[in-house]
Design a protein around this nucleic acid. Structure first.
Length: 305
DNA sequence: ATGCAGGAGAAAT
DNA sequence: ATTTCTCCTGCA
């Protein structure tokens, strides 16, 4: 079990960071906060981020030894951020339980991303983010959410705004939602907002249901298919067995695992079976590995015209 | 320029 | 039970 204490205040100039008691490299912190799991964070430096979590503004940074530091200008309890980082979950142990000993592709990905973890986000926020995610890049998704927060959310501190609740979103006409760079996704957002308004108990039922039932409830929502449902359940619902298959993961499995003509459904079944009860963590390692490969390839092509 | 982005749904095989 | 087309828009 990893450390849970979050009480070591560090004296600093301008902010009062709290030592969250776990360590990461700058690259891994960037991957966790801004690699596609969450859309709440903006880099303010090479190792510093600002964002809104649990109705509080936060600044996150790294100490010289890699320790993760957090500060809330709005006085948020550091325990909120400890929960967001799921510090009660021992990801090192979960990683060791993955089949890396017999899977060199996974083993390499794990070596590349030491300390990678799965966040425990707010489910409503994750649902909104991934509902906006189809055929969008991370920066575009963040822009949509930023516009929502600016227009309909509560101002927390400085330029930090909380996202509007689904309750608030349900009062906004679809054509107005469409003006915030959502495109055809506006119809889904409006429809989901209406569904949630008509069925206020749904989030709680999703939260408490086992994985298959929770997934079925989510995919019943308009615009929510299996991939988005799995992202919500993995990144916010604590279902580490959920194995979202996006185009990148599909590519990895088809090329690196010799599953060339497998369908997305077949690939998902393979992932669940091959990687086991924490398949979602394996998915994140593989996804981060291909993201790094893509970034490297982009640099190479830019340097070699 | 024009294909294509971390998809879903409906229609057409 | 798959495959194909469409849905918006901005980046590459």
């Amino acid at each position: 079990m990893e450390q849970l204490s979050v009480g070591n205040a560090v004296s600093g100039s301008g902010w009062e960071p709290v030592d969250l008691d776990f360590r990461l490299t700058p690259a891994v912190l960037a991957e966790i906060l801004d690699g596609g799991q969450a859309f709440a964070w903006d880099a303010t430096g090479t190792t510093t981020y600002s964002g809104a979590v649990a109705d509080h503004a936060w600044e996150i940074g790294l100490a010289a030894d890699g320790t993760v530091l957090a500060n809330s200008p709005t006085g948020g309890d550091p325990a909120l951020l400890a929960d967001y980082f799921a510090l009660d979950t021992d990801f090192a142990a979960l990683t060791d339980a993955l089949p890396w000993r017999s899977d060199t592709v996974l083993a390499r990905a794990i070596r590349q991303w030491p300390g990678l973890r799965i966040l425990r986000q707010d489910p409503g926020e994750a649902l909104l983010g991934f509902l906006c995610s189809s055929t969008k890049q991370i920066v575009q998704i963040k822009e949509i959410l930023r516009l929502f927060a600016r227009h309909y959310g509560m101002r927390l501190h400085g330029e930090a705004y909380a996202l509007p609740s689904w309750d608030v979103l349900s009062t906004i006409p679809e054509d107005e939602l469409r003006r915030h760079k959502t495109g055809y996704r506006a119809r889904y957002i409006a429809a989901v907002a209406k569904r949630l308004a008509d069925d206020p108990g749904l989030p709680d039922r999703v939260r408490t249901a086992p994985y298959p039932e929770a997934r079925a409830m989510l995919t019943d929502l308009p615009g929510v298919g299996g991939k988005i449902a799995d992202c919500v359940l993995l990144f916010a619902g604590g279902h580490l067995g959920a194995f979202p298959v996006d185009t990148w993961i599909a590519n990895v499995l088809r090329t690196e695992y010799g599953l060339a003509d497998w369908s997305p459904l077949q690939l998902r079944r393979f992932g669940e079976i091959h990687f086991g009860p924490h398949a979602g963590l394996a998915q994140q390692y593989l996804f981060s590995a291909v993201r790094r490969k893509r970034a490297t390839a982009a640099v190479d092509s830019a340097e070699m015209p």
